[in-house]
């Protein structure tokens, strides 16, 4: 039998640095989120639909020989045909082109409302959450009061004061719409500023600006984007709804809501006049919501049900 001596029991030296090779490619948070989003088929289909919607809304009205306001009483209420793909309405206007003008308004309202909510909400919520204490309390109390006013009331009041139109609708939607974003951002700030990595930055001598823009904002981007992606469809729907009940844009401007409204009495005889705007409203809403869900899952996998 082999003689065992003490030398046989020396610990082998392991170079810690060798042991810690990581073979997986390094992915930043956003690259990782994009990878997860790409795997989500429903979200990708929605995204492709939305991109197509945006592209068509920009180019179809530019290239079409029809426009949204020229009336042609001889050719009113025509069925869909090669000349008028979606038919014509009761004034002989081309429904196809009007749909894309309507898409422009919907997207304008959706993105403008989201952008204003983003700017106002992030600044307001950011200040409240970052400084906390009395400032926070006063600011959030004010937001609560504003939030308690029903928005239909706000819209009606605004319409009394201003011209009805896209601008008024955006104003009405954002007057209270930013509060949701402000609450999300404030919650994030309150939670994140207690994190140890913020204390670590402070102990290294970081000032407020660095803490805010290097640590707090980048870590709040996930929830901000998720909120944003759901603000867009709700603003689009609100515009359609307001236009449908006659509080939105006025003739001859085409909006999906006004088109649905005008198509409603003719539903029995000329169903396409109601069907096309209704289908576009529904499918667009669905696509935005599914895409928003996909973003939420990609940005924060823990939230997935």
């Amino acid at each position: 039998m082999q003689q065992l001596t003490k030398e046989h029991f020396q610990p082998i030296s392991v170079d810690l640095r060798q042991a810690e090779q990581i073979s997986r490619p390094s992915l930043s948070f956003w690259a990782d989120a994009w990878r997860r989003l790409k795997q989500n088929k429903v979200a990708m289909v929605s995204m492709i639909f939305l991109i197509a919607l945006i592209v068509c809304a920009i180019f179809v009205p530019m290239m079409s020989s029809n426009d949204y306001f020229t009336t042609d009483l001889a050719g009113k209420n025509k069925k869909p045909s090669a000349e008028h793909w979606f038919g014509t309405d009761d004034l002989g206007r081309d429904v196809f082109v009007r749909i894309w003008y309507g898409a422009r308004i919907s997207l304008e309202v959706g993105f403008a409302a989201a952008a204003i909510d983003l700017v106002v909400g992030v600044i307001y919520g950011g200040i409240a959450g970052f400084y906390g204490g009395k400032i926070d309390e006063a600011m959030m109390r004010f937001a609560d009061i504003l939030f308690a006013i029903p928005y239909l009331l706000v819209v009606i009041l605004l319409l009394v004061v201003f011209e009805p139109g896209v601008g008024t609708i955006i104003l009405a939607l954002t007057l209270t719409g930013w509060i949701g974003m402000a609450r999300i951002v404030r919650g994030q700030m309150l939670q994140l500023k207690q994190q140890e990595y913020v204390l670590a930055a402070r102990s290294l001598g970081a000032d407020d600006m660095r803490v805010l823009f290097k640590h707090l904002v980048p870590n709040s981007l996930g929830p901000i984007i998720v909120t944003l992606s759901l603000t867009v469809p709700s603003a689009i729907f609100a515009e359609s709804f307001l236009s449908f009940i006659g509080l939105g844009v006025s003739a001859p401007v085409a909006s999906w809501g006004t088109m649905a409204n005008e198509g409603l009495p003719a539903m029995k005889y000329y169903p396409w006049r109601l069907m096309f705007p209704a289908v576009f409203i529904s499918v667009t809403m669905l696509a935005f919501n599914l895409f928003g869900d996909g973003i939420r899952d990609a940005v924060d996998p823990r939230l997935r049900k």
Binding site: E196, Y197, L199, A200, A201, S203, L204, P218, N219
Partner: peptide, 14 residues
């Protein structure tokens, strides 16, 4: 300087 308790919370994930 300071070294923190929670190795998961003390490094900025972004």
């Amino acid at each position: 300087q300071m070294i923190f308790q929670d190795p998961y919370a003390s490094l900025n994930p972004r």
